[in-house]
Design a protein around this nucleic acid. Structure first.
Length: 465
RNA sequence: GGACAGGUGGCGGAGCGGCUGAACGCGCCGGUCUCGAAAACCGGUUUGCCCUUCGGGGCAACGUGGGUUCGAAUCCCACCCUGUCCGCCA
């Protein structure tokens, strides 16, 4: 959520921010409603102040008169009752005014709240302008010394690569047919060494992030209430992407939603809290199953393990002080952790600076990390794919946009409460990460060499097949 | 799922419908005392919003939402949540 005071002071900044992100939001209407709302509040409050004043004055008087009434002789009664009635009449007009303000405010509120939640965080000035992922800017590339992504796979390794689908099926590592039978398209079942490799890369990277980099290991809910989705800013804009469990229609008090990333559970932990400054930064990591409807992606990446409805992910989040330099430093550090992990896995990757049009509503800045996947990309003259980068990680910097919605604060130097900054990044998402691992580590005979760092998690084995 | 009990400030815990933003205790911060510390004593200690001539002024909040009332932490209704016991269960 944006800061209303900043919004009033400089609405143009937010108008431009939404434009840069290609998002529709009626800034003028929000300004108008805000003005109406404040005028009504001012009127209501001053009326209420008046009412309180009168109330304090007549309260004791009424009390006293009612006491007298009990003991009074019959002929005095009428007189006392008249006095009470007169006193009680005094605030009546004020009450009507207050109620009218109440009604008017209640009428504005839903539209105001909905609109306010829709205003995206403006992109940082140093984020390149652009309309789609086409306009993202490559920042850097890394290749292991034995592979050059500018040359075809065959030139690098001396044979034409197979896709992860073929390789995994050959080794009985995956079963698409039965999974699709059970759950429909974009589902899969991992089997045998497929499941082992999946667990190995998750467990290894979880150990890296928690033991080596000091992030606190957590297990958090993946089924959450709507407030948690709104608080983490996945709603309202991403509502279509989340699976909705309609418990309310079965008589329960509220619906639930499946989370699309561990970020939701990790960030939701401290909602509505005021932390001590010395508790910060909080560094959390979780390993969680992620659920995504992939609405609007019909026909895209339909084969294999690239775009699926359910996967597992090791996620890192940082909650730090509201200091731009500090949160930028954390962003760099979280990206460096992923680079270290990908280097240890020996996977070619590149860093992409996402352009304004590719940012979500909550991000001020986002760096995507893509790994080289030999089975992707256009096909060459022999009908073999040329290979392409595919997104495997995404590192977001949010300033206080998310914590403001979550009402997550800390007590600053001057004892004032301040909204925290938050950041998040993938550590490893599997099975998608299995695509580059399996395809890059394949041998001419169809076997797969297990990356060295994963061998301790695979019973010491060196290869599959 | 069944039966009770309960939701008040950082915590514990009061609270005849008006004087209660809230007693009391603990914790925390500041001060007195002391060479220093402890004890004792004194003072302070919620959050959000609105207005401001920047001195300050005002409103709201006792789980949530509605209602009764001139006036609600206190009365009524609905919902949510928590605890305990029983049943079921990885």
């Amino acid at each position: 959520m944006i800061d209303l005071k900043q919004f009033r002071a400089d609405p143009e900044r937010f108008r431009q921010g939404a434009r840069d992100k290609n998002m529709e939001v009626d800034i003028d209407r929000l300004l108008e409603l805000d003005e109406q709302r404040r005028a009504l509040m001012a009127k209501q409050e001053s009326t209420r102040a008046e009412q309180n004043r009168i109330s304090k004055e007549i309260g004791p008087q009424i009390g006293k008169l009612k006491g007298q009434l009990k003991k009074a002789a019959d002929d005095d009664r009428a007189e006392i009752e008249a006095q009470i009635a007169e006193l009680e009449q005094r605030p009546v007009a004020l009450k009507a005014t207050i109620q009218k303000c109440d009604q008017d405010l209640a009428e504005i509120k839903p539209e105001f709240d909905a609109l306010l939640l829709k205003v995206p965080q403006p992109p940082d000035p140093d984020v390149p302008k652009g309309v789609s992922e086409e306009d993202n800017v490559e920042k850097s590339r890394w290749n292991p010394d034995w592979y050059d992504t500018d040359k075809p796979f065959a030139e690098n390794k001396g044979f034409v690569p197979k896709s992860h689908i073929d390789l995994m099926q050959a080794h009985g590592m995956v079963d698409f047919e039965r999974a699709v039978k059970m759950a429909g398209t974009r589902h899969y079942a991992l089997a045998a060494d497929g499941m082992r490799l999946h667990q190995a890369v998750l467990n290894w990277s979880f150990d890296e992030i928690t033991s080596k980099h000091g992030f606190r290991p957590m297990s958090v809910p993946v089924i959450v209430r709507e407030e948690c989705m709104v608080g983490t800013a996945f709603f309202p804009s991403g509502r279509d992407q989340a699976y909705h469990i309609e418990e309310s229609s079965r008589g329960a008090g509220h619906d639930l939603f499946l989370t699309g990333t561990g970020e939701v559970g990790l960030m939701g932990l401290h909602a509505d809290e005021i932390l001590d400054a010395d508790q910060l930064p909080l560094q959390y990591a979780t390993i969680s199953t992620c659920f995504r409807r992939e609405a609007g992606a019909a026909g895209k990446d339909t084969a294999g393990l690239y775009r699926i409805h359910q996967f597992d992910k090791v996620e890192q989040v940082v909650i730090c002080k509201a200091d731009e330099q500090e949160s930028r430093a954390w962003h760099d550090r979280m990206i460096a952790i992923v680079e270290d992990i990908l280097k240890q896995l020996d996977l070619p990757y590149r860093l992409l600076q996402c352009c304004t049009g590719d940012l979500g509503p909550k991000n001020a800045d986002m760096i995507d990390i893509e790994c080289w996947m030999p089975s992707r990309g256009e096909t060459d003259e022999h009908g073999n794919p040329r290979g392409a980068y595919g997104e495997t990680h995404s590192a977001s910097r949010l300033y206080d946009y998310q914590c403001r919605r979550l009402n997550l604060r800390y007590r600053g130097e001057d004892k004032k409460t301040v909204f925290c900054h938050s950041l998040n990044n993938t550590v490893v998402a599997s099975p998608r990460i299995l695509i580059p691992i399996i395809e890059m580590c394949q041998n001419e005979d169809g076997s797969i060499t297990i990356p060295e760092v994963l061998r301790p998690y695979m019973n010491g084995r060196e290869r599959i097949g």
